[in-house]
Design a protein around this nucleic acid. Structure first.
Lengths: 245, 245
DNA sequence: TTCAAAGTAATGTCAGACAATTAAACGCCT
DNA sequence: AGGCGTTTAATTGTCTGACATTACTTTGAA
């Protein structure tokens, strides 16, 4: 684990990179303890604050965790599916909000990916998954629900559908697609959305999953995509003349 | 932007979180300059090293960039698709290597997602995408190619296929699925792989894309998945009795 | 007017110190 | 001898102050 001392700046980035590479290449394994900050600063011939900055960089990516006390120190973290999903969701939200992605592009990506799960979800769904989906549909039918709660339930429904595929890698990959879209869709369509229509489409999807009919799940998602796109188009069409005045 | 000074530890995490929230919620916009480290340390009533640790955390997630000099400082970064993809690939590699994901699960997730692009890629592929795919196939046919180069070309082929869908959000989401699998598949199957068979399957996929036949692209990917799974099964079957001795 | 040099403000790095926390080692009492 | 409370040591978390480095800005001179 070496760094280039000739480069004058960004020592902490170099050190973080060296440790990260060691983790990725398996030279540091899960739950292994890194040398103490004092030892690291000796090894890399830098000061302790510089080492600390490097460790904070790694902590920000959930690559290490730190513990205080006598047997404390920095430990290589097992990257859990949960932590990875949270990271992916944050990244996806930022990516969408900072890059002027069109509603259609994002919507297409989301539903294309979710449809990919359709067949697997229909084949493997358990009673638990079905119950979760039905519960969310029931919640969505409650008249007093706030817009935020309706959106959260919408996301929960789709998460249950994705999880029904029984493939944690797939669930992780789709976390960003499903959850990052919520703020975007919420801000655009929540005023015009017809909840009864959404509930009907969700019910059709749940029914198809219960019948283990993969094609019907896929069709249901396609119908939902069409509904969403038309809704957005209507809103954009109504906005433009208003803005042109 | 406030932090809780009563919590004794992890001040830098709190500060990083406060700034991150400000960025996500739009209170800090792209290319906006943050206050200087000295000003931030005053605002949050902490020392400059603590502020610096917080900024390094954000820099590790590509949320900010820093510049030295008189007009320097920390600026909100536009999260590019490229940077987001790089992050996702790193996260995916770590997730797979640290969580004992079965080959089958990862393989299924990868091909399920890639198949989802099939129809779009077939419909929208340009001459450039086709040329990229053909070029990679040609490279894969060269007899003197190293295993590493073959794998890299394999990844490039699939990247071209995914990019052909013309949806950058989709490309971003699939980056992890396609690129993170390379080390995993490489380490398991490269000894037993029949390159001619892979090239034939790739050619079939490229032909289908050229003919804009979405179903054929999907079928080609399914065939490739089957090939890969059987290859892996054969290897695991051969390993087990050897290890049992 | 143009170009070079000094000034200035910001990040990058270092050194040393103290506080807070935690587990292990130790000693004491039962 | 064994259990329990206390001390001790190691480590991270934070602070203070300083200097180095960088790059823009201003000023001055040709």
């Amino acid at each position: 684990m070496k760094i280039d001392p000739s480069s004058p700046a960004d020592l902490s980035a170099q050190i973080a990179g060296a440790i990260r590479d060691a983790i990725i290449e398996g030279r540091l394994i899960v739950d292994e303890r890194l040398p103490s900050e004092a030892e690291l600063s000796e090894q890399f011939a830098v000061s302790r604050p510089t080492v600390r900055e490097a460790l904070k960089r790694l902590a920000a990516q959930s690559l290490i965790r730190t513990q205080r006390g006598a047997t404390g120190g920095a430990f290589v973290n097992r990257l859990s599916f949960e932590a990875a999903q949270a990271q992916q969701i944050t990244t996806s939200i930022l990516l969408l909000s900072m890059n002027a992605v069109s509603f259609e592009t994002a919507c297409e990506a989301r539903f294309t990916l979710e449809r990919a799960c359709g067949a697997l979800s229909a084949a493997r769904r358990t009673a638990d998954h079905l119950a979760s989906m039905r519960a969310e549909i029931h919640r969505q039918s409650q008249p007093g629900l706030t817009d935020e709660a309706f959106c959260a339930s919408d996301v929960a429904f789709h998460r249950a559908l994705v999880d029904a595929a029984g493939n944690p890698v797939l669930s992780y990959q789709l976390a960003g697609a499903v959850e990052a879209m919520q703020p975007l869709m919420n801000m655009i369509t929540f005023t015009a959305r017809d909840r009864a229509r959404i509930v009907a489409l969700h019910t059709a999807i749940a029914d198809a999953a219960e019948a283990q009919n993969g094609a019907a799940v896929t069709d249901g998602l396609t119908a939902l995509e069409e509904e969403t796109k038309q809704l957005a188009q209507g809103i954009f069409a109504a906005r433009k003349p208003a803005a042109a005045r």
